[in-house]
Design a binder for these strands. Structure first.
Lengths: 131, 131
DNA sequence: CTTGACCTTCCAGTCACTGTAACCCTTATA
DNA sequence: TATAAGGGTTACAGTGACTGGAAGGTCAAG
């Protein structure tokens, strides 16, 4: 099956799929005319990657997950560890964003938002009111 | 004042400050020996940038904020609008991460994490259990 | 006079793609 | 049979916001 069809089935762009070949994630056979030829197994890998990326795993993590996916002798412990690390990371990011949100919220609520130049947001950014 | 001192006062790296000159954000004078020479106003701009970036504004947003910062005739309305857009964006990101977290949490909780290969995380990623 | 700490420029790398150009292949239609 | 549309191919540049490293110039202290 050629790359356009693979893109439709995996919900990835053609560009992305070619990129995944470049970085040796999914390497399809080639037909005589040079076209890529994706097997069913290749398609499964692409779908796997689409979902893993969608869950926030980096390409390197996806590479690792994919190797576990293809390994009949994997232990679920290894998979769980990766997912758990990602969970911790996501938690950290949420906390960070939440704190940004709180700060910005306070600033926005204190800003009149009128024609005048006086602005607590600018004041805060310029460090006029230390903190 | 030279770049090392500017870095200390602004809490930015020397590399970052040079980068900010490259992209025409803060353009200090030069001494005869070619060294950058930061004025007090330049330092204030660098501090302003450090704080704005820390609050999650992109470089382009910082450029805009900086121009408002330097404009005595700004209206706080304009500043508030930018901050508010960022707030909406942060909210979207938090929601997205929260949803990722929920999905991953469910998967991790259902995974035994033992020596065996059976793994609901892998199953989900491979699309075995549709949804 | 040398050492070390600072400064300079320029180029490459990061991450995960995306855009663009220039070209080749296949299939359907006039 | 010519051609046009819609695939496919490669290679290179750009994104955002830096960061690292090499190769070299400058300055102050001992």
């Amino acid at each position: 099956m050629n790359i356009g069809q693979a893109a439709k089935l995996s919900d990835l762009s053609v560009k992305t799929i070619r990129y995944y070949e470049d970085i040796e994630l999914v390497r399809p056979d080639r037909l005589e005319n040079g076209y890529r030829d994706y097997s069913d197994a290749d398609i499964h890998c692409l779908i796997f990657l689409q979902r893993s990326r969608g869950l926030g795993f980096t390409i390197d993590e996806c590479r690792l997950l994919l190797s576990l996916y293809e390994d009949d002798h994997r232990s679920s412990r290894d998979v769980k560890a990766i997912a758990n690390d990602k969970l911790v990371e996501i938690d950290r990011k949420i906390d960070e964003l939440q704190s940004l949100k709180n700060t910005l919220n306070t600033l926005v609520n204190n800003c009149h938002g009128d024609d005048k130049p006086d602005c607590p947001i600018i004041d805060k950014l310029s460090g006029q009111h230390a903190q």
